[in-house]
């Protein structure tokens, strides 16, 4: 779809910027979920990529087994993935909170391997197409570039969900509970707030964001058991650059690094796969807590 606009520099530039923005949309949604989870649970959720893949698969299954289309799936798949997250938290993760981060990382890494392994076993690795919903087919000719409607929608939807999440956490009473419990869960409990329940729901919400990203991704990338594994490493780099646990950091860095990656593809394509990791190294050297992180 994009091949036809390559070759002419301005179009290449805008095309790559758009691609960068799309990638950034997924980086932001995923790193936002990781940041929320890390802040509250102190768990580095390595299963995040697998749950993103699960979101795409749930959408695919809803369509192909039950005939439920994209729009309901956009709501249902995150709910289902969130519910699975809640079960995982209740059954497995909650035993690890008093231990070192490493245990949560290992457990969720194991979960990722299991979930991805199951889907590989059932569906193979070739990937299955998911159609773009009819309302978003086609695109706009902006003069300087062609803008596919669905891709524009992905950017808008991701931005809207990110900003809504940021608002809910930074500006509402429920968010104040979350921020307070991130700082001092014991005291928040001593005020009569059910912190264990908050932790469970936070994990559910964080992975539901991954599920949402998975549905958004399904029509762009094929639905594939390894789609999360490919993405999650970059997303972890994004989280490190933004600062572990920082909400705004996750959003801004997600979109910013997506764009940076796009620009690199235009000006020095050879570096486009590593530019994020180079930035990560530089940030770690200069500001180890991340661009938006606070020293703990």
């Amino acid at each position: 779809m994009f091949a036809e606009i390559f070759g002419i520099p301005p179009q290449a530039l805008f095309g790559q910027l758009l691609l960068g923005l799309i990638n950034g949309s997924f980086y932001a949604l995923l790193s936002l979920g990781l940041a929320v989870i890390f802040g509250m649970l102190n768990v580095i959720n390595f299963a995040h990529g697998a749950l993103y893949m699960l979101g795409a698969f749930v959408a695919w299954l809803l369509l192909n087994r039950l005939g439920i289309g994209y729009w309901p799936a956009l709501l249902l798949a995150p709910l289902i993935v969130g519910a699975i997250g809640i079960v995982l938290e209740k059954a497995l993760l909650r035993w690890l909170y008093k231990l070192d981060h490493l245990y949560g990382l290992l457990l969720t890494f194991g979960l990722a391997l299991i979930i991805e392994g199951m889907f590989r076993h059932w569906y193979g690795v070739s990937g299955m197409p998911y159609p773009i919903p009819p309302a978003l087919q086609g695109g706009q000719n902006l003069g300087f570039m062609f803008l596919p409607n669905y891709r524009a929608w992905v950017v808008v939807a991701s931005l809207a969900v990110c900003l809504a999440t940021w608002y809910a956490i930074e500006r509402t009473r429920l968010g104040a509970y979350l921020r307070a419990a991130t700082e001092n869960p014991v005291l928040v409990q001593a005020f009569g707030i059910n912190v264990p329940l908050m932790i469970t729901l936070t994990y559910g919400f964080g992975v539901a964001l991954a599920g949402f990203a998975g549905v958004l991704a399904a029509p762009i990338y094929s639905v594939n058991p390894l789609m999360g594994a490919n993405l999650i490493i970059v997303v972890f780099a994004v989280v490190v650059i933004g600062g572990m646990g920082s909400i705004l950091g996750a959003i801004v860095t997600g979109f910013g690094l997506g764009l940076l990656e796009g620009l690199t593809k235009v000006f020095y394509p050879e570096a486009s796969n590593i530019v994020i990791f180079v930035v990560m190294i530089v940030v770690l050297l200069i500001k180890p807590a991340g661009l938006f992180g606070r020293e703990r």
Partner: peptide, 8 residues
């Protein structure tokens, strides 16, 4: 009791 119940 769970701490949040005590506070309540």
């Amino acid at each position: 009791m769970a701490p949040f119940r005590i506070a309540r």
